[in-house]
Design a protein around this nucleic acid. Structure first.
Length: 414
RNA sequence: GCGGAAUUGGUGAAGUGGUUAACACGCCGGAUUGUGGCUCCGGUAUGCGUGGGUUCGAUCCCCACAUUUCGCCCCA
């Protein structure tokens, strides 16, 4: 038997029902928030991700699927969605149109990782990007939109964590202060943090091992190293979130793993057993320098991405929509009637089905119940001769004999 | 990339170096000669992750690989 490649998975059964529901809600939300759908290629030039996500990040260092095509072009399966959208924004000169450009995408991403619960090599992200506005109201919308979406999906125990990384200069100033502070304590940090100290000291804030140590508890806060302008901006974001009635928690230890973030960054976390405790189901932030860095005009942007596999895990099981009509028959004459009746009902907008495995009538009843059928049509040769069809309400168990010519209208009306 | 655990039928699972690998659920059929969901009876086609090895003999022991899962790393 040939098995699916490691880190991939099939969506079917209850997961498929969940995914359909999520996708429908995404489209519904995006329409009402005025986002336009964008689809970009699943593979892009390798350089795009090196220059956007960052050469030194783990994602690019060890997780991308890189390959050469037959003409030796260096390509990479997209590990995230923002880079492609920004590339498309520049390449198609969308900056020439009315701004801001509000876009959403929903598709598969690829990272060569160790698979685990809610973590796959091929996974699906839904995300939103707003290009061309630095209004703090955008920040508030980018945070509140997925939050409301998750609420609508019935996900409980949502928690927003938010931080302000400020401008590049703000971060450089902070980095200096942080290094200064940590230097004398270096020996007391875990091995990973010693490495991070050299490569990317900001990420030490993320460390789980040392999180409870006094060293990290007393670490200088990045919020104290912001310019007046950045601090005022962040205050506005917070104010808007308050007005939108979003629960959040300012966490000055959040630094994201992608290099392009600045100013507002956030995570939406779900406390959920299926996810093994707390798991980030969406995250994002501002990236005001990225468009320029990739060769476009200076354009402030913000976006988020949400891993649909994790969203599915955080959701309760969903019931399949019940079947409206199940048609039962035993002999060939009745079967002919069943087939034509089924077609007529389906065209009339009534969902229905009938047996095709030669089951006994008893089993057909069971199958109808498995489909949660609301109405049972029980075909009977004797009745058919009189032009009658028996309909049984599967909830009240009441039976009615309906004239053959009125059966469609009768079932549509119910 | 590092470390641990797991892998038995449609599903959940018990079990043993040697004739028919339990039990439960599900499913199918019958009792009910065309109206079920309860009950009872019966059935469920060469099934022990894959490939090697040890052995007279392996589902059970050894090795490798694959997949899943937990922790680390990282992230959605």
């Amino acid at each position: 038997m040939i098995l699916k490649p490691k880190g991939t998975y099939d969506v079917w059964g209850n997961d498929a029902i969940k995914l359909e529901r999520i996708n429908r809600l995404i489209e519904y939300f995006c329409e009402f928030y005025n986002y336009d759908y964008i689809r970009t290629p699943i593979f892009e030039a390798k350089d795009l991700f090196h220059r956007s996500v960052g050469d030194e990040t783990d994602i690019v260092q060890k997780e991308t699927y890189d390959f050469k095509d037959r003409s030796d072009r260096e390509l990479t399966l997209r590990p995230e969605g923002t880079a492609g959208v920004v590339r498309s924004f520049i390449e198609n000169k969308m900056y020439g149109e009315s701004l801001p450009k509000k876009l959403f995408y929903n598709g598969t991403m690829y990272r060569y990782e160790r698979p685990g619960n809610g973590r796959n090599r091929e996974f699906t992200q839904f995300g939103v990007e707003i290009l061309g506005s630095n209004d703090p109201a955008i920040d508030a919308e980018i945070i509140s939109m997925p939050y409301r979406l998750f609420e609508e999906l019935g996900i409980k125990d949502l928690n927003v964590k938010i931080n302000n990384l400020g401008s590049k200069e703000d971060r450089e100033n902070y980095k200096k202060a942080l290094v200064e502070y940590l230097k004398p304590h270096l020996d007391d940090l875990c091995e990973d943090c010693k490495r991070r100290f050299e490569v990317n000291p900001l990420r030490i804030l993320d460390c789980k091992v040392d999180a409870d140590s006094d060293i990290l508890k007393n670490v200088p806060s990045i919020l104290d190293y912001q310019s007046a302008e950045s601090t005022a901006r962040f205050k506005k974001v917070i104010e808007y979130l308050d007005y939108l009635d979003i629960d959040y928690e300012i966490d000055d230890k959040i630094v994201r793993g992608l290099d392009y973030y600045d100013y507002t960054v956030f995570e939406i976390v779900s406390e959920n057993e299926a996810l093994g405790g707390a798991a980030t189901i969406a995250a994002g932030g501002r990236y005001n320098d990225l468009v320029e860095k990739l060769g476009g005009p200076s354009t402030p942007c913000m976006g988020f991405a949400s891993g649909l596999e994790r969203v599915m895990l955080a959701m309760e099981d969903v019931e399949k929509n019940p079947l409206e009509v199940y048609i039962m028959y035993v002999n060939e004459e009745e079967k002919l009637k069943a087939i034509t009746l089924a077609q007529d009902l389906r065209i009339s907008g009534v969902s229905c089905d009938y047996d095709t495995t030669g089951r006994s009538l008893k089993s057909q009843f069971k199958e109808a119940d498995r489909n949660n059928a609301r109405e049972l049509v029980i075909l009977n040769s004797e009745d058919l001769k009189l032009g009658l069809i028996t309909v049984k309400d599967n909830i009240t168990k009441e039976e009615t004999k309906v004239d053959e010519n009125e059966i469609i209208d009768y079932l549509v009306s119910r």
